[in-house]
């Protein structure tokens, strides 16, 4: 009788303990998981290094070691600090500040120990960091006719392929419009950095945000 009692008590205690542990860890896990998901929603202005795998896989692959940052010869790449809107410790760059110089040997990809930056990227021209979009046709000097500017075109490392100045005509007025060819654009951001208007009139956007040709055919 007595042993039966203590047995029942033990089982009750055991189940109680399990519920206690599983319950508290589920609460913690939910909070951590939600925070992890939330902090993984990268803002459009933060561009991942060349070769970065799809954003939803990136935060599971990147160990936030910063080796890509260290091997970037132009100090383009930064590691997100805690409290910024990019997932803590993950690499990114702001094209307007320092764009990607499209090194032929792609040192950032070579440095990545986890293949978060995929070794499949062997030709930097196949990089797909984003795509440039003429976001400010109302401020672009060339479009508005303020000046014969073609700063973005000149800045582009693969000009005439990724970007051309297309002749347009509205009534009697002829002007040249910077035109991005998404299938060639790597999203390096040289055009965005080169743009002379106060707020860049051409910007690199993540490809899913850019309304462009059918998309990149690599």
């Amino acid at each position: 009788m007595k042993s039966n009692m203590s047995d029942r008590l033990n089982r009750r205690q055991f189940i109680g303990q399990c519920a206690h542990t599983v319950g508290s860890m589920s609460i913690l896990g939910l909070l951590l998981g939600t925070y992890t998901r939330q902090s993984a929603s990268t803002p459009a202005r933060a561009i991942r290094p060349p070769g970065a795998i799809a954003e939803e896989d990136f935060t599971g692959a990147c160990v936030r070691c910063g080796l890509c940052v260290r091997d970037c010869p132009y100090d383009t790449l930064k590691l997100a600090e805690f409290g910024s809107d990019v997932a803590t410790g993950t690499p990114y760059f702001i094209a307007r500040d320092i764009p990607c110089e499209m090194c032929e040997d792609i040192p950032c990809v070579a440095a990545c120990p986890t293949d978060a930056l995929s070794k499949d990227l062997t030709d930097i021209r196949d990089a797909d960091m984003g795509v440039a979009v003429l976001t400010g046709p109302d401020t672009c000097y060339s479009v508005t006719g303020v000046a014969h500017c073609r700063a973005c075109y000149v800045a582009c490392p693969i000009r005439d392929e990724a970007i051309t100045m297309e002749q347009k005509r509205v009534g009697n007025r002829i002007y040249f419009e910077p035109t991005v060819h998404a299938q060639h654009c790597t999203g390096c951001g040289k055009c965005e950095q080169g743009c002379v208007t106060e707020e860049a009139s051409i910007k690199v956007l993540p490809r899913h945000l850019a309304k462009h040709d059918a998309g990149r055919i690599a």
Binding site: T21, S24, M25, S26, L28, G29, L32, G33, Y35, T36, R37, S39, A40, E56, D57, T59, G60, C62, V63, R64, A87, T88, G89
Partner: peptide
């Protein structure tokens, strides 16, 4: 248990969970 939770959260969210904090 927090270690188990961190691994489970990584599996569910597809991100390295503990590195967020």
């Amino acid at each position: 248990w927090i270690m188990v939770m961190a691994l489970a959260t990584s599996a569910i969210t597809g991100a390295i969970a503990w590195e967020a904090v």
